[in-house]
Amino acid sequence: MDKLIDRGEAKAIVHNGLWKQNAGIVQILGMCPVLVMSNNIINGVSLGLATSLVMLISGMAVAAIRRFVPNELRTPIFILIIAALVTMVDLAMNAYVHGLYVVLGIFIPLITTNCIVLARAEAFASKNGVLQSGLDGLFMGLGLTGVLAVLGAMRELVGQGTLLSSIDLLFGPQAKDWVIHVIPADAHYQFLLAMLPPGAFIGLGFLVAGKLALDRRAEARAKAAPPQPASETATV
């Protein structure tokens, strides 16, 4: 019996999700939550993880039923699956991390319409095995989470001089002291632009440019070595 998934394939999927086809800074998908919820690390990472969870399960579910889904009806069916999963995440977050649930607000239900979730269901999960699709969903989500974390850290640091602010929403009131004040709190430092939506656009622009610069440097370095055959590169 064939192995369900081999090492090289898994590696390529992980690399795609985290770096090569990164949802946030390469595919530039799902911008609405990325731009709004990246005002600090905690918000960004929480939303990213919730999205990852939905993508992991929806990837597997879509892949499992892919042979029975009529092509003409696939979008509503995928959306129904995703919406059901998002509702579960929504209810669970309301129950266990209510403070954060209030902050993230409408952006949890909106994971349903986040194009990256449907994009992976359509472009990857509907054509690949269950394990591959689950892995792809998870790492696409984690790639997005990474972008949200970095962007959140940048905006928080520039905007109010802290890291991990509002961490108490996740871990309860005793976590209030875990907030790192890079600039002392009594300095009342504030640079509103970074906290407002323009800060998200400018920050994301720098991240995209940074990734391109790193890629170019790697390319120049690898010029001598023979090119690796590219594996799955589904883009939407």
Partner: peptide, 10 residues
């Protein structure tokens, strides 16, 4: 642009 940044931020 410089002016608008200041106006919005401070």
């Amino acid at each position: 642009v410089g002016f608008a940044v200041l106006m919005v931020s401070f």
